[in-house]
Design a protein around this nucleic acid. Structure first.
Length: 268
DNA sequence: ATGGCCGGTGGAACCGGA
C-alpha cells in the first residue's frame, strides 16, 4: 500500500497539478494539508472520478486537511483532541480497511513564527509559538493513545519541524526559527521517542533531502530547501515499511506547491 | 552581493505562510 502526504498550498490553485501527480504516482491513500477550502467547496469529483474516497476537514481561507483513499475509510475523526476552543483545521484521521486495518492520521502542525519568548525563555501566552508547542503536547497525547491501541498506525503531514541541521541546506538560517529552535525539536523528539519510526530516516541517511523550497529568493533554483514533511510509524507499521521517497521533481513543474509529496510503501 | 513569492479574500491591499 502506497501512502502519500502532500501540502498542496490551496486545492483550487492545485486543481491541475494534483490530479496529474495522482495519475502518475498512483498512491492508494493521500493526506493533504493546506487545502484552504471549506468542505462544501472542495472539488470532490476530481478525486472521486479517479476512484478515491474523499474525507475533508476544511476551514475558510487557511489550513485545512483531507484524506483521499482508494480503499474504504472508517471511523473518520476531525480535529486534534485536547482543546475544544481550537478551531483550526489541522488534523484528520481514519482507518483504512485493507487486508489489515491501518490507522492514518493527517496533520498540519502550526508554523509557530514569530517566536515570542518571555524573559525567562517561556513562550508568550497567546502567541503563535506557544500555540505550536501546546499543539505538539496534544499531538503527543494522541500519539500515546495510538501506540496503546497496538494497531498499525502512522501520523503523516507537514510537521513544520526541521529535525536536524542536515535537514536544511542552510541550517544557520534556521537556528532562531520556530521550525528548528531547540524547544520545537525537543517536542518533536519526545513524540518520536515514544516509539515511532521516522520513515524517511529509516531508509535514507545524510544531507540534501528536502520537502519544501520557499517561493522566494530563488530557493528552488539554489536547492535551498528544508525537510519538514514527515511520516511517523508506530512499531506495528514500521515492521511493514518497504520504502519511503520524496517526489522532488514535482517542485520544478508549472504552478507547483512550495512543498512536494512524500510517500511510504507498506507491506499491508 | 542582495533580493527576488504565492494563495486566498474580495474586489485593494492585506494576511498567512516558512
Amino acid at each position: 500500500m502506497k501512502i502519500a502526504s502532500f501540502n498542496i498550498n490551496g486545492i483550487k490553485a492545485r486543481a491541475a497539478a494534483l490530479p496529474q501527480w495522482l495519475d502518475e504516482a498512483q498512491p492508494d491513500v493521500v493526506v493533504l494539508q493546506e487545502v484552504k477550502s471549506v468542505d462544501e467547496a472542495f472539488p470532490r469529483a476530481l478525486f472521486e472520478d479517479r476512484g478515491y474516497n474523499v474525507e475533508t476537514h476544511g476551514q475558510k481561507g487557511f489550513n485545512g486537511v483531507a484524506i483521499l483513499s482508494k480503499l474504504p475509510l472508517e471511523d473518520v475523526s476531525r480535529g486534534l483532541p485536547g482543546d475544544d476552543d481550537d478551531l483550526q483545521a489541522r488534523w484528520i484521521e481514519a482507518t483504512v480497511v485493507g487486508k489489515q486495518a491501518l490507522r492514518i492520521c493527517g496533520l498540519y502542525l502550526p508554523n509557530g513564527n514569530p517566536v515570542e519568548l518571555n524573559p525567562d525563555g517561556s513562550p508568550v501566552a497567546g502567541g503563535k509559538y506557544a500555540y505550536k508547542l501546546a499543539w505538539m503536547e496534544r499531538l503527543k497525547a494522541r500519539a500515546q493513545a495510538l501506540l496503546k491501541s497496538e494497531m498499525p498506525a502512522l501520523m503523516a503531514g507537514d510537521y513544520n519541524i526541521i529535525p536536524q541541521a542536515e535537514d536544511a541546506k542552510r541550517p544557520e538560517a534556521w537556528i532562531e526559527d520556530a521550525l528548528h529552535r531547540p524547544e520545537s525539536r525537543a517536542a518533536y523528539q519526545r513524540i518520536v521517542n515514544l516509539g515511532f519510526t521516522e520513515a524517511f530516516r529509516a531508509r535514507h541517511q545524510g544531507p540534501g533531502h528536502y520537502s519544501f523550497w520557499d517561493y522566494q529568493a530563488g530557493a528552488w533554483n539554489k536547492d535551498d530547501g528544508i525537510r519538514i514533511d514527515h511520516f511517523l510509524l508506530s512499531p506495528q507499521a514500521a515492521d511493514l515499511l518497504l520504502d519511503c521517497q520524496i517526489d522532488k521533481e514535482i517542485r520544478g513543474r508549472d504552478k507547483p506547491s512550495d512543498h512536494v509529496p512524500i510517500w511510504v510503501e507498506l507491506d499491508i
